[in-house]
């Protein structure tokens, strides 16, 4: 059981060690110096104005939560697809009801213009 995960563990170890090494080596080799020019967002380009931490409009949130909800709908399709052949027509009906109910939600989303970017 565990043996099949061994490659993943090796990968995980690599993923942890590589950034650590990359963070530590420059500290040993080079010296740190910070000047205003060096700290700027673009060293050669337009000088940055204001702060990057602006308040986001709520429409971003709306898109994100709608994505999440339909994402969950899609996730239910995975186990369904796994036994679709065994369930036959019965499975088609039950998934049909599920998707149809969410179709009403999709209609609502479209009609309310929630996806329209203004």
């Amino acid at each position: 059981m565990l043996r099949i995960y061994f490659p993943i563990l090796v990968l995980l170890a690599f993923a942890v060690i590589t950034p650590l090494v990359m963070l530590i080596i420059p500290k040993i080799l080079g010296k740190r110096e910070s000047t205003p020019v060096k700290d700027a967002a673009y060293e050669c380009g337009i000088p940055a104005k204001g702060d990057a931490r602006e308040r986001f409009p709520i429409k971003f949130y709306l898109i994100a939560i709608l994505f999440l909800l339909f994402d969950i709908e899609a996730i239910f399709l995975y186990p369904w697809a796994y036994i679709y052949r065994k369930l036959g027509i019965f499975g088609l009906i039950e998934m049909g009801v599920f998707v149809f109910i969410l179709l009403v939600g999709y209609l609502y989303v479209i009609k309310k213009g929630a996806l329209r970017w203004q």
């Binding site: 709306l62 499975g91 039950e94 009801v97 109910i101 969410l102 609502y108």
Partner: peptide, 27 residues
């Protein structure tokens, strides 16, 4: 898809409510 068929279908009702609620409050 057999024993918990009803809770499964209920999930879609829950998602529908969540869609309506989110749009109602955030739009």
């Amino acid at each position: 898809f057999t024993k918990f068929l009803f809770p499964f279908e209920l999930t879609s009702v829950l998602l529908l409510i969540a869609i309506v609620g989110a749009i109602l409050l955030a739009k």
